[in-house]
Amino acid sequence: MGDVPSDPRLNSLAKIDQVIHAPARLMILTYLYVVESADYVFLMRLTGLTWGNLATHLNKLEETGYVEVQKGFNGKKPQSTLRMTDQGRAAFRAYKKNMVQILDDLPD
């Protein structure tokens, strides 16, 4: 089999941010993008993810620098507040732009 000639129109596929592209993380980031901050419980209810699943994805997003976790207390109970960083917002906007371009370029 010979090499398949690359289609320059599909180059933008390579630019897709794989951290954001995972459905669960995309959901988390979508909700965090439209608010200032939220806690774990709120995100869990909105996304429908389990506690463990949510924590795993948030760890990944925190490692990448897209999400910031601020640990604090609500009375005597520990409460972590999550907010999207500026880097995360920029990456999310770039992802959105790329996806729009890719989908627009696809033939009907």
Partner: peptide
């Protein structure tokens, strides 16, 4: 309510 639904700070 808060322990069940969580808390959120809205956008500007």
């Amino acid at each position: 309510v808060a322990p069940r639904l969580g808390t959120v700070r809205f956008s500007q």
